[in-house]
Design a protein around this nucleic acid. Structure first.
Lengths: 160, 160
DNA sequence: CGGGCTTAGTTGTAGTGTCAACCAAGGCGG
DNA sequence: CCGCCTTGGTTGACACTACAACTAAGCCCG
């Protein structure tokens, strides 16, 4: 094994802050959504992805990509959302192995009702504390990181 | 309720990428540590915090702050680490309500053995893809976010 | 057209995290 | 010095995630 290349002091400082944010942020998003809408951030995000899709429908595999999750995880979450009436599952006519997930009207209403509070949380905690220049830097840096973290570019972030 | 202030396109782009990174990164850290050392990132981080403390010892509350977690969560994790022989628990002599957690020699060895692989992962996925200027921007931006996310500045990131 | 590989998805289980309830010690006002 | 609030920490129940095993359908090739 070769010599370990430790981090420089500047790198270490930045990394520690970054990790802290990565640890804290999900909790902030989750608890607002849990408190105000009784959904997890991941559930909300799943429904939001469906809400933007044509016919509010996506195949499970595509939805897994869009939410950047694994199929088993998604399958469980969709089961829960289905039980709550927010999503429907139907076998895909084109490929009988596949399953289509569709956002129900109730699910759509849920997203519409939940979005403002969620956006507010994002604003308060992330967007508003930053300047326009910061936002541009953040966009650039996260884009660079995604190139490594998500080489297949499964996540939709770069679609636009 | 007042009108929702939606995100501008630039804000939305940056936010989506940021969320993607926040979703993906923990998994990357966890799976390397799990695979190579059979510890979660949080367990590793907990031990790392202890390893840097005087006498490799911290009170549970301080350790919870240092790892930016809640006391219940920490308590469970320390229980597991204790079972594996990496940490000792002892009642604090000064305040009999309090508990001191101490990294054992085995725990210290574990950290020493695990650190290089972990640093390598951090380098590969975060540090090396970024320029020095990016690192400086990241440090600045995450610092700004922590001011909001962690107003009491419990997390150690800003100690130095 | 039949055996074997690949793809799509579900399910079970075991491990983690969260939350609320709880216990025990300190501290403070009457 | 005794009730009551606060602080420090643990525990147990429940929810969510990851991983592995499994089913089923498509696909390819002899």
């Amino acid at each position: 094994m070769t010599e370990t290349r430790w981090l420089t002091p500047e790198q270490l400082r930045a990394w520690k802050k970054f990790v802290a944010v990565v640890e804290i942020l999900p909790g902030v998003l989750d608890s607002q959504l849990q408190r105000d809408a009784e959904v997890t951030h991941f559930e909300y995000f799943t429904m939001a992805m469906l809400s933007e899709a044509p016919a509010r429908t996506l195949r499970m595999t595509s939805l897994a990509s869009a939410t950047n999750s694994t199929l088993p995880r998604l399958s469980h979450v969709v089961s829960r959302l289905e039980k709550r009436g927010y999503v429907d599952r139907a076998p895909c006519p084109d490929d009988r192995r596949a399953t289509n997930a569709t956002l129900t009207e109730a699910g759509w209403q849920k997203v519409v009702a939940t979005a403002p509070g969620h956006v507010e949380t994002v604003r308060d905690n992330v967007i508003d504390p930053l300047s326009a220049a910061d936002i541009a830097d953040l966009d650039r840096i996260m884009g660079e990181l995604l190139r490594t973290l998500d080489p297949e570019n499964r996540f939709r972030a770069n679609d636009e």
